[in-house]
Write a protein that binds this DNA or RNA. Structure first.
Lengths: 311, 311
DNA sequence: ATGGTCGCTTAAATATACCTTAAGTGAACC
DNA sequence: GGTTCACTTAAGGTATATTTAAGCGACCAT
């Protein structure tokens, strides 16, 4: 018994036929006549030495052998298709798929995207806003903006921005706030999305850094996504420990203020990530250069800040 | 850009060439001339619209596109090969691969196998003695003898034998043992292999069932595999809580005795397991019938026993 | 019950894809 | 500087895949 593969066209014909349980439909899918399919199946059955389908009245059903063969071939062809698609994408500079977290997408990327799109009308953008770990090949993604330490083998990964977090609130709310003790009396807005870090930059950490380790930070509102926490602060619902990347536009237009110089930062940053080698693709390069240009414009918000690393 | 697959022979040629980084060697593997390979690669590159290899002096190297394409295609073809092999095995009744735990293989299967082999000289047997969970398709296994509750979807699973465990020792050692209290003074041999059960049938359970919950069972010898524990008991090293399936031959020939009627059993049993539908394959059926016949011959060891379920 | 339809099969003809042979290129090695 | 090695190219042949057309049997509707 040889462990070589049978003719691949026959295998592909089988996969389609078994999936549809109909030679007719499978033939349509492969854009051939039913006769061709019948011939291919017969050929494959001859190679195997046993039938793969039982021919019924006016339908076909899988034999045990067919049932054994189907899942593996389906998965196998799907993998081939995915690999081919990923390779095609490399040479296609008319589409670019970017994945980032929901907060970064909503508060940073989305408001700016039209500028990139206007400057690059030949590139069709797609966004996948999720915190899920994506597989570049499997999920058809070109670029990821991810929060992390970098250093993963096989990826190009460059820090985007040294971010930091500091108390932020509406100007109205800020009027009565002079000291850290004043802050603790306001409703605290908590962002619970950073669950994957060992030591999370939260209200407890900030008050500890401010010399008030015993402040009770358990009260207030909790959000599972950073952009929702910021939205609450915009409504004047309280004070949020806001991250630069999702608040800079409100700091810029005055809807939020950050009266304390004391800020927290972490060893992890937002990073620009793509498969190693693809950073030179024209579309990727253009997006890369654009995003770093945009980032440079928000650097000045760090001036005069007292930024403390927590780890 | 179509998301259909490129010509499959071209893809296969690429996979081999990329793996070898040599068209020559790839051509040998596929049993064609180098010219054919060159043609196929060129064809695939034309489909993609970009080169997959960079042609060097007298070698080839993968481009970024090639590096992207290789892993997926390799995995894909490997999956197709595995599925085909598994299907071929269904129609091949000259080989039978059985997996079972090390103890069951050593103490039950191995000593009896020659009888099956003599009665079925046309079947070539292979054994995989491991506790690892095997995948029938991926690991090329036909039949598994596994300890468990059964009920898994997609598998034929039939209880082999209602096993039980009871204190066993050499006849010499047994001379001074009249009561359970006597037992506790002997070296206890522990079998630590049943780690996957919630409640393990161990010495603590047995003494508790015997009405002696406070016996200290921490002393003695510990083994990570049941057959080694039994071997120690055969040497007279102590008393083991022996499982019927791995000791019946010694109970039969008198090398071990089991003086207490009190025995433990669990909801889980040894089971005969194979992919659903394959239980009717001639080679599988013959092995199935043989093993149940053999099992019937050790049923009489249960006579007069006081078997208690633990769960 | 019976003729029409549907889905698979078969056989012969045809088209396409694949492979081989043979000649050719360029760089590396001796 | 000639030889070798690995890939390339082109032409021609062969094997493989596909179509066309005819056929078969069972279901279904009349």
């Amino acid at each position: 018994m040889s462990d070589r593969l049978p003719p691949l066209t026959a295998l592909r014909a089988f996969e389609a036929a078994a999936r549809h349980l109909s030679f007719q439909n499978a033939a349509d899918e492969l854009a051939v006549t039913p006769a061709a399919l019948s011939y291919q199946i017969k050929n494959l059955e001859a190679h195997l030495g046993a039938p793969l389908f039982t021919r019924l009245n006016r339908a076909v059903a899988l034999t045990e052998a067919g049932k054994t063969l189907l899942p593996g071939t389906s998965d196998g062809f799907e993998q081939l298709r995915a690999a081919w698609r990923a390779t095609q994408r490399l040479t296609d500079d008319t589409k670019l798929t970017i994945t980032a977290g929901p907060a970064f997408t909503a508060k940073w990327l989305a408001p700016r995207m039209f500028r990139f799109a206007q400057a690059n009308p030949d590139i069709e953008m797609r966004f996948a806003a999720t915190l899920k770990v994506m597989d570049f090949t499997r999920d058809d993604v070109d670029v990821a903006i991810r929060f992390g330490l970098g250093g993963d083998e096989g990826y190009y990964s460059e820090p985007l921005l040294r971010g930091w977090l500091t108390p932020m609130m509406t100007p109205t709310l800020a009027e009565g706030v002079k000291t850290a003790e004043d802050l603790a009396k306001l409703p605290l807005i908590h962002d619970d999305s950073m669950t994957f870090l060992k030591r999370v930059p939260n209200w407890g950490e900030w008050f500890a850094a401010a010399g008030l380790p015993d402040v009770d930070t358990s009260h207030g509102l909790r959000f599972s996504q950073a952009d929702h926490a910021v939205d609450a602060a915009l409504e004047g619902a309280g004070v949020v420990l806001g991250r630069l990347s999702v608040t800079e536009r409100y700091l810029g237009n005055g809807r939020l203020v950050a009266p304390f110089a004391l800020s927290l930062t972490t060893p992890a940053h937002y990073r620009f990530v793509c498969p190693a080698g693809t950073e030179t693709r024209p579309a990727v390069k253009r997006f890369h250069d654009w995003i770093y240009g945009e980032m440079a414009e928000i650097d000045h918000f760090a001036e005069g800040r007292d930024i403390r690393m927590i780890e």
